[in-house]
Amino acid sequence: MAVNTDYLLHLADNALILGQRNAEWCGHGPILEEDMAMANNSLDLIGQARLLYQHVANLRKDGRTSEDLLAYFRDAYEFRNYTLLELPHSTALLPTASGDRDYSVTIVRNFLYSALMVLVWDALKQSSDSHLAAIAAKSFKEVQYHLAHSRSWLIRLGDGTGLSHQKMQAAVDYLMPFTQEFWVDSPMEIVAAETGLGLQVSSLKAAWEEIVDDALTEATLKYSSSQGFVTTGKLGVHSEHLGFVLAEMQSLARAHPTAVW
């Protein structure tokens, strides 16, 4: 049976792009402990991405596909990550504007994504693809810790000072609409669910809302409406931000394609 590699790439790209984003804090963290936290978080995410890319390369068996090719030599339209994960660490900006990184956006995004992935990885431990099930078993352990970390900061900052509360609420209000993309099943996800490789993430919505609601309440934050435009990153149609992420991440490999360590 041919395995749906688009679905695997979706999982891998999610991990790689968020890993790349969170690694931006390396050397710039708001405090030393959080600098280390984001570096470690990225290490786990990029590690998960590598396992998945290696799996895709093994499945394609075309003698050409490698983890490096998938990470460094695909363009934005070929990436299948959620749009949420490619956004800069700041609230809404004009496309060409840049702002200071805002840790509240980092924490809220990590929380919203980890709350989803703790459910996804747990379910994927039963995948019909035994190799994906093995990756899920490892990733599940890691994402639990990411969720515990981001959840504790969500509460600490949400239920913190007037300013930290205000910034956290702004981050929740900004990011929540992007989570709508989780619940609109794409063709690759529907196929993956039919073959038992993956699952329809929409079936996890109630469980996700329960985790999110519980933490937001403890953090004294309001669950904001997630109405409006539904992003389509997982279909390969991204925001303007992904190109900048890829330019930074891929430029070295593309400038020196045959370089080795």
């Binding site: 703790v118 459910l119 747990d122 599940f140 352990k141 959840r151 469980a207 996700w208 985790i211 519980d214």
Partner: peptide, 14 residues
């Protein structure tokens, strides 16, 4: 982490 164990997100969040 045996396949039989059921992950409970509510317990997780509490």
């Amino acid at each position: 982490d045996s396949p039989q164990s059921v992950f409970n997100p509510i317990q997780f969040a509490s």
